[in-house]
Simulated assay, not measured.
Amino acid sequence: MSVVPKTKENVRKCMCTKCPSYTLICKVKSVPDKVSVSFSDLESKGHAEVMFCAYEPSRCIEKEKGCLCETCELFREYNLKNSFYCIVAGGKL
C-alpha cells in the first residue's frame, strides 16, 4: 500500500466526511479539528478527523454504515487496496 501524503490538496480530495459511516454527530464533533487542519502543518499532525487512509482511524465513528473508499480519488491515485480506514488502522482487507 502506498503512503498517502498529508497535504491540503489531498484533504480537499478526501471523501471521508461524505461517507455514510461518518455520522452527523461526528461531523459536529470534528469542527474544531477541521479548523486546525486548515491552519496547521498537516505532516506533523498525529490525528485528523479526515483522510483516515493517511492519518489514523476516526475517534468518533463506531459502526460501519457503508464505505466510499473505493470511489475516492486518493484511493485510485495512491493505489490503495483496503476499505474502512476510518475504523481500522490501515483499513480492512
Rank of each mutant, 00 (worst) to 15 (best):
M1Y: 07
V4I: 05
P5K: 10
P5Y: 02
P5L: 03
K6H: 06
K6F: 03
N10F: 00
N10R: 00
N10H: 04
V11W: 01
R12M: 04
R12Q: 11
R12G: 01
R12N: 07
K13T: 03
M15Q: 13
M15R: 10
C16W: 13
K18C: 13
K18N: 15
K18V: 00
C19P: 10
P20R: 13
S21G: 11
S21P: 13
S21I: 08
Y22K: 06
Y22N: 10
L24Y: 07
I25Q: 12
I25P: 01
C26Y: 01
C26A: 14
C26I: 06
C26P: 06
K27L: 06
K27W: 01
V28H: 01
V28C: 10
V28S: 14
K29P: 08
K29E: 11
K29S: 12
S30H: 03
S30C: 11
V31C: 04
P32R: 06
K34F: 12
K34E: 08
K34G: 11
V35K: 09
S38E: 13
F39M: 11
F39Y: 02
F39E: 06
F39S: 10
F39C: 12
S40H: 00
D41Q: 13
D41S: 05
S44M: 02
S44I: 06
S44W: 00
K45G: 01
K45V: 09
K45I: 04
K45M: 15
K45F: 05
G46T: 09
G46V: 03
G46M: 10
A48Y: 01
A48E: 09
V50D: 08
V50S: 14
F52Q: 04
F52G: 04
F52K: 07
F52H: 15
C53I: 05
C53Q: 10
C53R: 02
C53P: 07
A54T: 00
Y55L: 08
E56H: 05
E56W: 00
P57S: 00
P57A: 10
P57G: 04
P57I: 07
P57K: 03
S58V: 05
R59Y: 06
R59V: 02
R59L: 05
E62R: 14
E62A: 06
K63A: 09
K63M: 11
E64T: 15
E64K: 14
E64N: 15
K65S: 13
G66V: 00
G66Q: 04
G66M: 06
C67A: 12
C67W: 08
L68W: 12
C69I: 12
E70Q: 14
C72P: 10
C72E: 09
C72A: 05
E73M: 07
E73H: 01
E73Q: 11
L74M: 05
L74Q: 04
F75P: 01
R76Y: 01
E77L: 12
E77V: 06
Y78R: 05
Y78G: 05
Y78L: 04
N82Q: 11
S83G: 03
S83T: 15
F84S: 15
F84D: 14
Y85K: 00
Y85T: 12
C86N: 11
C86G: 09
C86P: 13
C86F: 05
C86E: 00
V88Y: 14
V88Q: 08
V88H: 13
A89H: 06
A89W: 03
G91N: 03
G91T: 11
K92Y: 02
K92I: 09
L93I: 11
